[in-house]
Amino acid sequence: MTTRIVELRQGILKKNDELARSLRAQFEASGVLVLNLVSSPGTGKTEFLQRTLRELINSGAKAAALVGDLETDNDARRLAASGAPVRQINTHGICHLEAEMIAKHLDGWKLAELDYLFIENVGNLVCPSSYDLGEKIRVALLSVTEGEDKPLKYPTLYNSADVAVITKIDIAQAVGFDRDAALRNIAEIRPGVRIFETSAKTGAGMAEWLAYLAQQRSAK
């Protein structure tokens, strides 16, 4: 009997990473800007995205969305009200989206005809951060109702953000939202990240967000 060590030095999510890389190349070649929206359940991803899609489409841009949930197509139906093409991904128990699910659900869409593709991830503050979907921009959302210290509690997610969005600021006062603490905590976890303060209900902050999107798209 001999004991030996076999070196593997292998990424455990290698399959996902490789597929995400090839998706990213495909997105770049098609000229579509892809964003992955992550947050806890109920932060307001769908509401924020619906308004974003509607305003983009009104301004003549072409935008589409994929939305991940464990079950139901409720969010897809809400998003489709914006007029954008939308597809629901049901993960049936899996708490995050994976690159393979994205690849499967792009079938038949002409990426080159799109300006923006949004991916609403499953509401979860832990698992989605490990899975690259090939996006260019990862958007981490935080609502005024869920506590200013969320970024400190879930640094793995907020540290991976390219941009942060605070949602539901229309009710900030009613829930005693401490804006300075929230901004400080986000900056502590992700120094220098751009932060948008928005309300999907009133439209506050949406103009800045849309200007950012347009600028990111033309910067490609």
């Binding site: 009997m1 001999t2 004991t3 030996r4 060590i5 076999v6 070196e7 593997l8 030095r9 292998q10 990424g11 455990i12 999510l13 490990s130 900056a187 992700r190 120094p191 220098g192």
Partner: peptide
């Protein structure tokens, strides 16, 4: 100084395995 340039911390790898082999 605030830091953004990560060099280590997101790894998720199999490093090695130890096996017993019958000669």
């Amino acid at each position: 100084e605030p830091l953004t340039d990560m060099r280590q911390g997101r790894e998720l790898e199999i490093d090695s395995i130890e096996i017993d082999q019958v000669e």
